[in-house]
Each structure stands twice: as structure tokens, then as C-alpha cells.
């Protein structure tokens, strides 16, 4: 697969094109130019390293939405075996913007739930760009209750621009569906491990992101509103998205400082999409470590810790009242 480069990666893109051309020449020429190719590859790597060492929050936001970034089904394929997808909310429909089902993680039964975006135009439409409707959240809740019943841990993967803002979604209770999930996940008697793999878009992301541990990929984002949305409301211009991204504090490092994320999962050089295998390996290890940690707690202890953590969210000051 040919890598798609983002705006700020243009220099890398040019270098990679050049390497490609040289390789092509190499094939039907007697001259050995592999040294030259090697030199350029090194240059491309160090350039990528330089660029990624100082990504702005807005650039990270672009990486988190990269069209080649691994999606939930990619992680399911690489991290789990025996995936049995389960469908539908038993009330209205099956929402393809959220996928879920039983699977095996290093041999252990787990319930996997995640947002799913599409790769091509047709699939994007089918998946509604990863924007769930109420039935998606209700399916997720049904699967979580199922997992609880059989004492199966839950792993969720978060990657959505947000819950779908549509007439039908409102008519069928988008708000209630999200709110109910927040409530259920707070008291669910089984471990829940959440990983932000791409775009953590507001309430639509949070609705499957309450649990015992929050992991976040290095170039993922998580925000109360998209930088564009924030800019168009507060600056009255979507062009200020970059400033908004800066001030909203949407990156993994910033959120870890605020205590909202437990662990940042490093991505391969140039982002997860540059090396699926490496990304999967790193995440798999972290997920197993986290699962062990959560499972080592007694159930009551685990629930109390989850509750205490939820109650600790927020920054404020307290004054003495007379």
C-alpha cells in the first residue's frame, strides 16, 4: 500500500517518490545505486523523526484521522483470535459504525467493542464515517451486559468524529443512549479497558470510554469538541482550528498530565499507519499488562477504584465559607 502523506510531510513525500523512482531505475540498470537509495532512506527517516518530534496538536489531529490509520477491525484482526461478531440492538437496527463481539485475547475470552470507520467511499458511507446512531450505543450496551453476565472482560476501541447528528438519531434518543452507557459502564461488574486509537470525538467517544483503564495511542486525540467545531463557535471561523487544537488540550501527553489518560502507547515512526505490525505488537503487550493489572483486583475493589476515579475528574478550587 502506498503511503498517503499529510501536508506537513511533503518533504518526506518527495524523498519517498525519489526513492521509488530510483528503485524503478535500479531494476533495469546495470549500475548499482543501492547506496544512494540507502542514503535517501536514511534521510527520509531522520526527516520524519524531526517532523514527528515537534508535531503541533493540530498536526496530531491530522495523523489521528489519517485515512490509512488502523481501525477497530484491523486491531481485532491482529490482536484477537476467534472473533465472533455480534449484531444489533434488539430494538431497532444494527449500526455498522460500532462493531463488537466475542473474541480471544492471548487465549482468554473477551468482549471487543469499537467504532468503525470505512476505507473507501462506499464503506465510509456504510459505516457512516464512524458516527454511531443510538442503536450503535444500545448494541454496545447489550454486549457489555452480556460480558458482565459471563464475567468476561471488555476492551473498547475509540475512533469517532462524534455521535451522528441526524433527525432520526434525535428521534430515537441519541442523548438517552449515550447517557445510559455512561451510567452502565460506571457500575458494570467486569473489567473495562478503553483505548483511544484515533479520534476521540466528544460524547460519541465517551459513550464507550468509561472504564478501569484509559490507554491512548501517541498520535490519537480526545476532545470535548473537534478543533474545527470549537473554532467556528468561539472564533467564528473554522480556519482557526489550529489555535483551537492548541488551547483545547487534545493530545495524549496533555491529557496524561491532566490525569485523564493512564498510559500512552508509542506509535511507530511516522504514525501507526506506517507500520501496522509494530503498532499491533506494542498495543498487544500494553493491553495484556493492563488486563493483568485490572484483573488482579478483587471485583469490589475494582469497582470502587473505578468510581473513585470518576469522582476525581475535574479541576476546581475550594474556598472557606463563613
Amino acid at each position: 500500500m502506498k503511503v498517503t502523506f499529510l501536508d506537513f510531510e511533503q518533504q518526506v513525500s518527495e524523498l519517498e517518490n525519489k526513492i521509488e523512482q530510483l528503485r524503478y531505475v535500479q531494476d533495469d540498470s546495470a549500475l548499482d545505486i543501492s547506496d544512494e537509495i540507502g542514503r535517501l532512506q536514511k534521510k527520509s527517516q531522520s526527516l520524519t523523526k524531526d517532523i514527528y518530534a515537534k508535531l503541533t496538536p493540530w498536526q496530531i489531529s491530522q495523523v489521528s484521522r489519517h485515512p490509512q490509520r488502523p481501525y477497530t477491525l484491523d486491531y481485532i484482526q491482529h490482536l484477537f483470535t476467534d472473533f465472533e461478531e455480534l449484531h444489533g440492538d434488539r430494538a431497532y437496527a444494527d449500526d455498522p459504525a460500532i462493531v463488537g463481539g466475542l473474541a480471544r485475547f492471548n487465549g482468554q475470552s473477551v468482549m471487543v467493542i469499537g467504532h468503525q470507520k470505512g476505507r473507501d467511499t462506499k464503506e465510509r458511507q456504510y459505516r457512516n464515517f464512524g458516527m454511531p446512531r443510538p442503536e450503535g450505543y444500545r448494541k454496545a450496551m447489550r454486549l457489555m451486559r452480556l460480558a458482565e453476565k459471563f464475567g468476561i472482560p471488555i476492551m473498547t476501541f475509540i475512533d469517532t468524529p462524534g455521535a451522528y447528528p441526524g433527525v432520526g438519531a434525535e428521534e430515537r434518543g441519541q442523548s438517552e443512549a449515550i447517557g445510559k452507557n455512561l451510567y452502565v459502564m460506571a457500575e458494570l461488574r467486569t473489567p473495562i479497558i478503553c483505548t483511544i486509537i484515533g479520534e476521540g470525538g466528544s460524547g460519541g467517544a465517551l459513550a464507550i470510554a468509561v472504564g478501569d483503564a484509559m490507554l491512548m495511542l501517541q498520535y490519537a486525540t480526545y476532545s470535548v469538541i473537534s478543533p474545527e467545531g470549537c473554532a467556528s463557535i468561539l472564533w467564528k471561523s473554522a480556519d482557526k482550528a489550529s489555535e483551537a487544537a492548541e488551547t483545547l488540550g487534545i493530545t495524549a501527553t496533555r491529557l496524561k498530565t491532566l490525569g485523564l489518560v493512564d498510559k500512552i502507547i508509542s506509535e511507530p515512526l511516522g504514525g501507526a499507519h506506517r507500520d501496522y505490525a509494530a503498532m499491533m505488537q506494542t498495543l498487544k503487550k500494553s493491553l495484556q499488562d493492563t488486563l493483568n493489572q485490572v484483573q488482579s483486583q478483587a471485583p469490589g475493589e475494582m469497582l470502587q477504584a473505578r468510581f473513585n476515579r470518576l469522582m476525581s475528574y475535574g479541576k476546581f478550587k475550594e474556598i472557606e465559607l463563613n
Binding site: G179, L182, Y183, M185, A186, E187, S202, G203, L206, V210, Y222, S223, V224, I225, C230, I233, L234, T247, L248, G249, I250, L255, L258, L260, F307, L310, M311, Y313, G314, K315
Partner: peptide, 18 residues
């Protein structure tokens, strides 16, 4: 949610519901 508090405000949804 209050945008000016970033993700901290989003988390109030989880906190109040819990």
C-alpha cells in the same frame, strides 16, 4: 459541556452519571 475546560468538561458527563 463547557468547551473552555476541554476534556475535563466532557468527563463531567461520566462523573455525574456515575
Amino acid at each position: 459541556a463547557r468547551m473552555q475546560e476541554g476534556l475535563l468538561s466532557l468527563m463531567q458527563m461520566a462523573k455525574t452519571s456515575a
